[in-house]
Every structure is written in structure tokens, then in C-alpha cells.
């Protein structure tokens, strides 16, 4: 993608009156959004018993994704930070309920009430620090933590995301797993850069099918402080226990001067022909001998 809206301005400013109208009147965007929401709902895998569910649409914007939910017969709450986008949603008379809120501040919802959550092209906005008080890691943590609480057991959350780079993808996934979610990434059209779409599929409770590498990272860190340190210094995380074991091993294998002198003494006692001890005994040869 040539120019990412995330890099231009914060969402509540970028999606102003004109941009919100432009967004919703573009038939191309409407079509893409509908297709993405359709796929997200499919991944949500709600039980097929014709009972309407109560879903959450995070970053609902003008309600394009919500329309797909309504078409499938479910009720939904939409959350967005842009008042202009929500105004367009009101004008379009969407069926869901709308909330003006910032997902990075956490979702103030009661626990265990939501049957599932979807979010189309929204979560990557959290990776930006648009204000001085914003810290992407903490905002993602607040978001995923509050989402985990408000979902009912066994519910799923599906996020379609456009991460800017691998680091962003890792950050999002790691925070989700830390909040207690299980799950991983589903990539549609992986071979095409243009059509490639990534869906983060998270499950709340029982089912555990998380991506192996991320899981390891999660397991190795003992506390949160370890994590933040790693992120600040940008080093590869490695737990202390492993390092200690490695050191012990190398010490054992190394045979020092004392060991050589003892062995030579033993050999002399047996009557073998042993070279004399000198200051060179037990020294390493230079690399170019």
C-alpha cells in the first residue's frame, strides 16, 4: 500500500466530515469492506441455530461491516473514535447501536456479555502513538484485556488487520496472547501483495491452537518487566535459565592448565616419556600456527 492513512493523522482527525463521506460513497471500498466482513463472520464460526447473536464491531466507521452482520440476522454494537464516521452511519440508518469511544482506552463493557467481536481494518491504528500520553503497547494491552473480559466463554474475535511490518504484527499478536486469548493468524491470498488479507482469529477460553513461535516467546518471559526491557532495547529475548545452563556446560568441557599438569604427572608416574612443564603448558596456540 503506497500511502497508509495511519501515517497521515490520528483516526478521529483523518476521518473528518469529507473523508467519512468519501469513504462510504466509494463503491470499491464498500465492496471490499463487505467482502472482508463476510469473511470475518465466516471465521467467527457462530453456531448455526438461527438464534441471533449479540456481536461487537470494533472500529465500525460508517457501519459498512455492521450491515453485513445485520444481513446475517445478528444484533451488533459498533464502536468508533470518529464522530463524523458515526454521523454517516446514523444517516444511513444502520440497525446496530453506535458508541463513540477509543478502543485503546479499553471497552467499558460488562463481563461475559458479548457473543463475538469483529473488526475490519482498525486494530493497526493502535500501533501509532498519536498523543504524548499514548503508548502502543499499553493501549493494545488495555484493548485486548477489556475485550477478553467482555466476551463470553468460547466466543471468538476476528480482526482483519493491515500491519505495517513484521514488528507490528508480532506486537499485536503478542499482546493478544498475553491477554489470555488463544488463536493465530489466517492469511488469505498469501501469494499476492495486493489481495493479501490477514485475519487475526482469537478464541476466548477452551480451544487452544496458537501459533507456535509466539507461544514460545510468551512462555519464556517470566514477568512483564522482562518484556518491556526486551522491547526497548530491541534484543532477542532469551531466558536466564537457558543462558546459565550453557555456561555450566562450557566450563565443564574446558580442560585448563591444572588438569593438564595433573594428567602429565599421572603419566610420568606410569613411566611414560612426558615433555617437561613450562610456561607454555596448557596455552592455546595462536590461530595462525
Amino acid at each position: 500500500m503506497a500511502n497508509r492513512p495511519e501515517l497521515l493523522a490520528p483516526p478521529e482527525i483523518f476521518y473528518d466530515e469529507t473523508e467519512a463521506r468519501k469513504y462510504t460513497s466509494s463503491s470499491r471500498i464498500v465492496e471490499i469492506q463487505a467482502r472482508l466482513s463476510e469473511r470475518a463472520l465466516e471465521l467467527l464460526a457462530l453456531p448455526e441455530d438461527d438464534v441471533p447473536r449479540f456481536l461487537l464491531d470494533i472500529g465500525c466507521g460508517s457501519g459498512l461491516s455492521g450491515e453485513t452482520i445485520s444481513e446475517n440476522g445478528h444484533h451488533w454494537i459498533g464502536l468508533d473514535i470518529s464522530a463524523s464516521m458515526l454521523n454517516v452511519a446514523v444517516e444511513r440508518e444502520v440497525e446496530g447501536d453506535l458508541l463513540l469511544g477509543d478502543m485503546g482506552q479499553g471497552l467499558g463493557l460488562r463481563s461475559g456479555v458479548i457473543d463475538g467481536a469483529i473488526s475490519i481494518s482498525a486494530v493497526q491504528w493502535l500501533c501509532n502513538a498519536d498523543k504524548s500520553c499514548h503508548e502502543p503497547r499499553l493501549r493494545l494491552k488495555a484493548f485486548f484485556g477489556s475485550l477478553y473480559r467482555c466476551l463470553s466463554r468460547g466466543a471468538r474475535a476476528v480482526f482483519q488487520v493491515y500491519p505495517e511490518n513484521i514488528a507490528q504484527r508480532e506486537l499485536i499478536l503478542r499482546q493478544a496472547l498475553q491477554a489470555g486469548f488463544g488463536g493465530g493468524l489466517v492469511v488469505d491470498y498469501p501469494h499476492s501483495t495486493k489481495k493479501r488479507k490477514e485475519f487475526l482469529v482469537l478464541t476466548c477460553g477452551s480451544i487452544q491452537t496458537s501459533i507456535q513461535t509466539s507461544k514460545n516467546e510468551h512462555g519464556e518471559s517470566c514477568s512483564e518487566d522482562d518484556f518491556s526491557e526486551d522491547e526497548e532495547s530491541g534484543t532477542v529475548s532469551m531466558s536466564d535459565r537457558n543462558r546459565a545452563r550453557k555456561r555450566q556446560k562450557t566450563k565443564k568441557n574446558k580442560k585448563g592448565r591444572e588438569w593438564i599438569l595433573r594428567k602429565k604427572e599421572q603419566s610420568r608416574r606410569k613411566g611414560n616419556d612426558v615433555p617437561e612443564d613450562s610456561k607454555y603448558t596448557g596455552r592455546k596456540r595462536k590461530s595462525r600456527f
Binding site: 449479540f54 447501536d97 458508541l99 482506552q105 479499553g106 460488562r110 456479555v113 458479548i114 467482555c150
Partner: peptide
């Protein structure tokens, strides 16, 4: 806003204990 949303919405201010309804 419908009452179904009101029934799920709680105050999200940091440190508030009695936040619902």
C-alpha cells in the same frame, strides 16, 4: 442508544469500583 447497550455499558474511568449501571 437502546437499553440492551445501556445494560452492558459501564463507566471505564480508571480506579472506579462502582461503575454499573
Amino acid at each position: 442508544m437502546r437499553l440492551i447497550v445501556h445494560n452492558m455499558l459501564s463507566c471505564n474511568i480508571r480506579g472506579v469500583v462502582n461503575k454499573f449501571p
